[in-house]
Amino acid sequence: MTTKPQGEPVRDELEFRRKSTYITDRITADGFGDWPVEAGRYRLVVARACPWANRAIIVRRLLGLESAISLAACAPTHDSRSWTFGSHAGDVDPVLGYERLQQAYLARFPDYDQGITVPALVDVPSAAVVTNDFAQLTLDFSTQWTGLHRAGAPDLYPEPLRDEMDAVMQRIFNDVNNGVYRCGFAQSQQAYERAYARLFGALDWLSERLATNRYLMGGSITESDVRLFVTLVRFDAVYHGHFKCNRHKLTELPVLWAYCRDLFQTPGFGDTVDFLEAKQHFYLVHAHINPSGVVPNGPDLSNWLTPHGREALGGRPFGDGTAPGPAPAGEAVPPGHGVV
């Protein structure tokens, strides 16, 4: 079954609207369609700089899918053609043999003219992209790849909570994950102010929700926490200044700052975050916002490891499961790119 990209047009030139144009094929346990779950068949292409890709890295790690789905990390910057697999001309991915992620898209759709996005799952035998539908991709890791989960993998998408989770994640996407981009890419004062109000209104709502709950859905981590974390962890380093999301820094929002430090210090979260590449990506790629190309040195990252006190709210991070082990060889954040 071949599913071409689906999407909707941009409707307002002054207000940023993310084009929801993705390849919506799914890899399923029952093999419906062309893409069955199969260990070693697919390669997850990411960029550590990208929050949407970071959440795929985290979910893959928490579920222990590293041996089932290989990982290819792109360089932090890209040009109009696409992400590259190395920092130097001629660098290629050792598995796919490509210099650019664009080649995997064109191998599937020779006339592909949409965005070349990460994360993307690529079929290794054909070296062609399967899907870049980032929202469904991680949910399928939880629901379709269960036969290949590690022993002790947490349930990140508990069936009894899905209706409420979906609603929470939708607001997080609209007003926080995408909300920071709405602020940064607004083309008028009015569009910016609307986005700013939505973003900080949502952060206030999340602060209230998390004041008495350790995690968004109660006593253990779910995918909703992963989705919120990847934006919060980049907030002070990127969005506060670069995207003008400056009512408060994360460090000035007591509940969210403690919550995010709690997650950051949990195996599988903070040890996947590459602050250096995140700053390089946003400050270098968005030349219309930062024409000088200067990448800031700050902020100080040492406070990410300070006590957060969230244990007092109870709960168990992984529910009945266990923490993941260290990152596989070659997948750890490079020295000097993270907190430690």
Rank of each mutant, 00 (worst) to 15 (best):
S224C: 10
P326D: 04
P5M: 02
P307L: 03
A29M: 11
N177L: 08
R310D: 07
I58H: 11
R214K: 04
Q187I: 03
P326M: 04
T212G: 10
A120W: 03
T231H: 13
D93N: 12
A202W: 01
V130I: 07
L232Y: 11
C183T: 10
G336F: 12
A89F: 14
Y239W: 06
F109N: 00
G241A: 12
R171H: 12
G315D: 01
H337Q: 03
L148G: 07
T222A: 07
A135R: 08
H242A: 13
E277A: 15
V340E: 08
S224I: 10
N54W: 09
Y192C: 01
G33E: 00
V295F: 13
V37A: 01
V45Q: 04
G330D: 00
V95K: 05
K279W: 15
H242P: 15
I57D: 11
P291R: 00
H337I: 06
H337W: 09
F243Y: 13
P324E: 05
Y105R: 07
R81T: 15
I116Y: 02
G315C: 00
V168M: 13
I57V: 15
V294K: 02
T266I: 11
P267T: 15
A75F: 09
R26I: 05
G179N: 05
D262A: 05
N303T: 09
P324W: 11
F229S: 03
A151E: 13
C50Q: 06
L161V: 12
T131A: 01
S302F: 13
F16M: 00
H242G: 13
T266G: 03
G201D: 11
P94N: 06
T3K: 11
P296Y: 09
N246A: 07
Q103F: 15
A75Y: 09
